[in-house]
């Protein structure tokens, strides 16, 4: 160990992998619907894509988790993003490609991708 900076670097590298254990409300929570309906509609590759992208970009303030059936099975796979201090965003009819976009736009930049939201889907 040569310097504090080196230690900090090491710390940041691992932080993303353990922060889901910290009871910290400032983290972004990404919830994937993984009931039978969700899995059948392809929730698993969506979740995989979310995690791969988060890992690739080494995002440390966010974790991915899963939930049961949300109730709108026809719109699965569904991904909900909880950003502390703002309203929940519900993305529907997800696929792996869209999932990557969510990470880049919503999680990193805090921007809502309107066309993927449940509001947009219901208006069609």
């Amino acid at each position: 160990m040569k310097s504090l900076a080196e230690l900090e670097q090491l710390r940041n590298k691992t932080l993303a992998r353990v922060n889901l254990r910290k009871e910290d409300d400032s983290n972004i929570r990404v919830v994937v619907g993984m009931a039978t309906c969700g899995i059948a509609a392809g929730a698993r590759p969506v979740m995989k894509a979310l995690m791969d992208e988060i890992e690739k970009r080494n995002i440390s303030n966010c974790f991915v988790t899963q939930t049961g059936c949300i109730g709108v099975c026809r719109l699965e796979p569904i991904v909900e993003v909880y950003i502390p201090g703002s309203e929940k965003i519900t993305y529907v009819k997800m696929d792996a490609e869209k999932a990557v976009k969510i990470v880049n736009e919503t999680i990193v930049n805090g921007k809502v991708i309107n066309e993927y939201t449940i509001g947009a889907a219901e208006n069609n």
Partner: peptide, 8 residues
Amino acid sequence: MELARGHV
């Protein structure tokens, strides 16, 4: 260590 969505 890999990124995991859940820790047991």
